[in-house]
Design a binder for these strands. Structure first.
Lengths: 244, 244, 244, 244
DNA sequence: TATGAATGAGACTTCATTCAT
DNA sequence: TATGAATGAAGTCTCATTCAT
């Protein structure tokens, strides 16, 4: 009935906000993102308000809407950056030439746990946000799909080379083992932070992963040397990385 | 739990509400729970209001607080009932005497997926609620712990009998494989309902599970006969149980 | 994207708010309507806020929404009451038996101007609101349609009796002359309140009206005696009823 | 004019903005006006924002205030231009020498409807704006006064020549019949655009008009030939000019 | 002349919970 | 036990206008 509602509906379909042109604008926008990330990490998605974000960034309330459409949008962008970072961390040290399959898998798992650990609070916020906003759920879904596609391909390749059990369905395996790794990270790093041991979790995860697809997991301490360089940041509050 | 909610909860903290004395009271309480469950299933935790629950139960808004302390509490109770139901479904048909290990595991997995499927919407609501309220997160955690303890014990037992790879750490395996099964259920039943195939997912999950702990997974169609009795309810909206 | 928006959309289609049950509720609701009417009269539709309405009615902001869905809705209801009142005033004294056509028309016109005069500020608010909200525009349209239907019928009847020019198209005449009366009321009472003379305007309006449809307009002061009882309220600020 | 707007306007009240000096300035100003007109037509006064106007004109937001004091001011100027255009259309073809009075009236009415039709959306915006801003209401009032003065004079002249009923008060007649024509245009072209028939409305309007002031309205198809040239633009959305 | 960032008051609305009856 | 009115803090978002560059 109201025209205000009608107006909003009309403008919802309008163009996205253009990026800032001046350095000052870029600074403000960055400050808002920084402030947003801090708050989302501290209070989660739901309990962070646009007001808090603006206040902490020391700009007027309205300024927020100069740069972002909504709380969802800024969160989505922060998450996007996070995933960039995620990929960077996970790929920053390519496996040694001729590394065994199980080594590669271990490296990937440890990389995932490491990155998760470094961004635990934000991942927790995402886990929440994805249940509250369809848009953000979609972002997470899309990311997951990318991950699964890549893993499906890898498993299929290994299978062709005879390294992986031929009974395995690569698509299901990628999906199910993806769930395993991701959920283990969430549970052990976010929910049970106090008892988390990155190295051990990584090892156990990898053993189960390799067994599951029929790869022999040979492991001794020496062979792990090449994995020690992962710790890039101080672990977040409540998420210790023991034995790293 | 939102800041606001937490604050209020702290302020109240009075004695818990006594159970109803009269039959009428019991009826009212039950109506509220039924109504609550319906709404939580339809709209999730966050988007269901106490008002809606009361209205649907055809009682005055204030009456809600005669029987429940808060939205969290009624939700917690509904979830508690759900887990009772979950256990009932999962154990309703004990495995045949002398069934092989992989059969037992398959049965357990199919049971879990079946129960999940029957309660998909509520499980989704729980997934959301657990990110919003520490109290509800705790309920979920406790349930998970129980599950893991049992599985840890089972794996250890099997290991002692020499059925399971001795390199496996039962505690980690239980936790990690629990994550795998639970998360796969969530992802495939809640998030990707349209393409869910209970029988196939169950099989794939079991194969990976068995491989992971070093059990031979022998599977043919005949051996599945004992699994057919699971479907107890019509599947919930959007969660088809293909090939069941 | 946001779930809040989705939620709102979902609830927009929900049931209307039930009327109050208790006397206290009825009192509060009435207070809100009174307060709303006062403010709409004083500041118009646009410049009256729900906050002001609640404050003036001495209830909490939220209480407003216990009884009304929105500013539009309460305004719509106030306008509905106004039209009831309008009809009451216009029909409160039936024309004398055997009064001539022109007398009846004069009486109707004076009645309209009188009622308009008594509710000038609210009519002005409606004029504004109808340009701002499709819903309220529709209310006005519906009212106008009713009015025109009745007048079309009357003119057609008169035409059949040979009292009205046969070249006149009753539908157009009703519509156009309705515009004439209504707009004259708005312009002279709302926009040019200071120079408004009810009696004279009424007379002039009626003469043109009668001429337009071909009725002889015979008029002298004596014949007007039966119209003097109209003034029911003190005229509103700025809307003098001279010579009444 | 909204309270907020009025307050600000009072605060500013600085000297009016000088007209642009350079050709570039003139171009920018014109672009803003064009853009404004488009948007006001599309969304009305209230729902058009200064931001939109600037954006559409491809200038920075701040630039708007280089050329205009406020949204009201630019709208006022656009309306001023509109009235110029209105007068141009209405007088573009002077009546044939010796045309009858009713022909002249018909021509004027058709001219008004034609011009209204060509600018329907802007007239609707004005109708809205006049209820929101005292300044714009004043503009409309002034225009109306001019119109009435001319018509009063014309009617008085006709009366002196004995063409018009001597009982008519020229001032009132001009005002009231002006209301009739103007409101009929608004209602039938803006509010009921879909069923608008310019030719028929024009005829009906004229018949009532002539009757009202006591002029014989003689009308046949031939006599209408001189009115056919009015259609100057494609009719605006929703305002069909049937039978033209 | 132009830019575009920044402002901040203010609007509407929701909802868990309390309280008087 | 039941009622339903009342609360009021909190949240999201808009936009005309100013200002520093």
């Amino acid at each position: 009935m109201s025209n205000q509602t009608e107006r909003r509906a009309r403008q919802a379909a309008s163009q996205p906000i253009a990026p800032p042109v001046t350095a000052r604008g870029a600074r403000t926008r960055a400050a808002l993102k920084r402030s947003g990330r801090n708050l989302f990490e501290k209070h989660g998605f739901q309990d962070t308000s646009v007001n808090q974000i603006s206040t902490r960034a020391r700009v007027a309330h309205g300024t927020f809407y100069t740069y972002f459409d909504s709380k969802e949008q800024i969160f989505g962008e922060i998450i996007h950056d996070l995933f960039m970072e995620f990929n960077r961390v996970m790929t920053e040290q390519p496996p040694a030439e001729g590394a065994s399959l199980s080594h590669r898998i271990e490296r990937a798992n440890r990389g995932y746990l490491t990155a998760y650990c470094d961004n635990a609070r934000l991942m927790a916020a995402l886990e929440q946000a994805a249940t509250l906003s369809t848009g953000l759920a979609e972002i997470r879904r899309a990311t997951r799909v990318g991950w699964i596609v890549r893993n499906t391909a890898a498993i299929a390749r290994w299978q062709e080379r005879g390294d992986v059990d031929e009974h395995i369905d690569p698509r299901y395996a990628a999906e199910i083992l993806g769930c395993m790794v991701d959920r283990t990270a969430y549970v052990s790093i976010v929910l049970e932070a106090s008892s988390f041991d990155l190295e051990e979790t990584s090892r156990q995860l990898t053993r189960l992963y390799c067994n599951a697809i029929g790869i022999t997991y040979f492991r001794d301490v020496t062979s792990m040397r090449d994995g020690l360089a992962y710790a890039t940041k101080p672990p977040q509050r409540g998420a210790s990385r023991r034995a790293t």
